[in-house]
């Protein structure tokens, strides 16, 4: 049985579709990431799955429970790390853990938990004296304290410095090694690539692409980009017509995109050699996942904006 099964989930606020017919399923032990820009519907989906919000339509099954009606038994088995920090500043780290540990039937031992999240040396500190990264790790500790089967992490590293981010990444990888199922949301491509087995790219409440980082590259980034500097905005008149069809000029650069770059490169270099044309700063690159993500999200947005303008 999948810990998370979502089928045709929709939710709108005041006529605006926040989540539009989203379906996904997450395997046990898997880290699944919802990737998308702000306002794409990530938090809405996660909060519906956590039981905070009601859905308009569709079915949701979390560990066999419907989060909309399930209460105690459901909450004992999930761990929630909210997007915003929600801690009592006047308590110490140790007291904070102890308060939340009492809610669960089989809580993790406090000291184990503190060393897992790297706060063992700060147990006596007031929460208000912790750094942003330490507070975030305490939040994650609160999500773990009940020893949940499933953990929701809503943008766990937003607003943190690179070092603190890296710490949290390592922590999430470690959790996954314990066999925890993790649903992660993020707007950082590098983050989901480092942490998630599978990624769903979310734009305007819809999943526009889904798969492993490898398959996303294959499907949405299966082209090679060839570029060289031309200096002015015109290609030479002798530039071969077949190549011209796949070339565009971008701020003094000629850019060619091809699924199979070998014949294109052959034609290009043959022409340049015969015409004594200097292919200045010639480069051949595969798009990064970041670029694929930006293309996916921008493509959708310009399509929508275009419709809106008509």
């Amino acid at each position: 049985m999948h810990p998370i099964t979502v089928d045709n989930l929709s939710k709108s606020y005041g006529g605006q579709m926040a989540v539009n017919a989203v379906s996904l399923s997450v395997d046990a032990g898997e880290t699944f990431a919802l990737l998308g820009p702000n306002g794409a519907g990530k938090t809405t989906i996660i909060e519906i799955l956590e039981g905070y919000r009601k859905r308009d339509s569709g079915t949701v099954s979390i560990l066999g429970f419907d989060p909309q009606t399930a209460e105690r038994a459901f909450r004992e088995r999930i761990g929630i790390v909210l997007q915003s920090t929600a801690l009592e500043p006047d308590l110490t780290v140790r007291e904070t853990i102890d308060v939340y540990a009492r809610f669960y039937p089989r809580p993790l031992a406090r000291d184990d938990l503190l060393s897992l999240v790297g706060l063992a040396d700060n147990a006596q500190k007031r929460v208000s004296a912790l750094s942003g990264g330490q507070q975030r790790r305490l939040e994650i500790a609160l999500g773990l304290v009940g020893d949940p089967d499933l953990i929701f992490l809503d943008e766990p590293t937003t607003g943190l410095d690179p070092d603190a981010r890296r710490n949290i990444w390592n922590l999430i990888l470690e959790l996954n090694q314990f066999g925890k199922t993790i649903l992660l949301s993020s707007h950082y491509m590098d983050e989901v690539e480092a942490l998630a087995h599978r990624i769903a790219v979310l734009v305007d409440g819809q999943i526009v692409a889904e798969g492993t980082s490898h398959s996303l590259r294959e499907i949405h980034g299966g082209y090679t980009e060839i570029r060289f500097h031309v200096g002015n905005d015109d290609l030479p008149g002798s530039f071969p017509a077949p190549l011209r069809q796949i070339t565009f000029i971008e701020r003094g650069w000629a850019v060619l995109e091809a699924r199979n770059p070998t014949p294109v490169l052959a034609d290009l270099t043959k022409w340049a050699f015969s015409q004594q044309f200097d292919l200045a700063h010639l480069s051949v690159t595969q798009p990064s996942l970041e670029e694929i993500y930006l293309t996916l999200t921008r493509g959708r947005r310009s399509e929508r904006d275009g419709r809106g303008a008509k």
Partner: peptide, 17 residues
């Protein structure tokens, strides 16, 4: 204040009634 800080929301996500 606890609601502004999100503490109430967090409590709502735990098994505590």
């Amino acid at each position: 204040t606890a609601r502004d800080q999100g503490v109430l929301k967090r409590i709502r996500g735990t098994p505590l009634a």
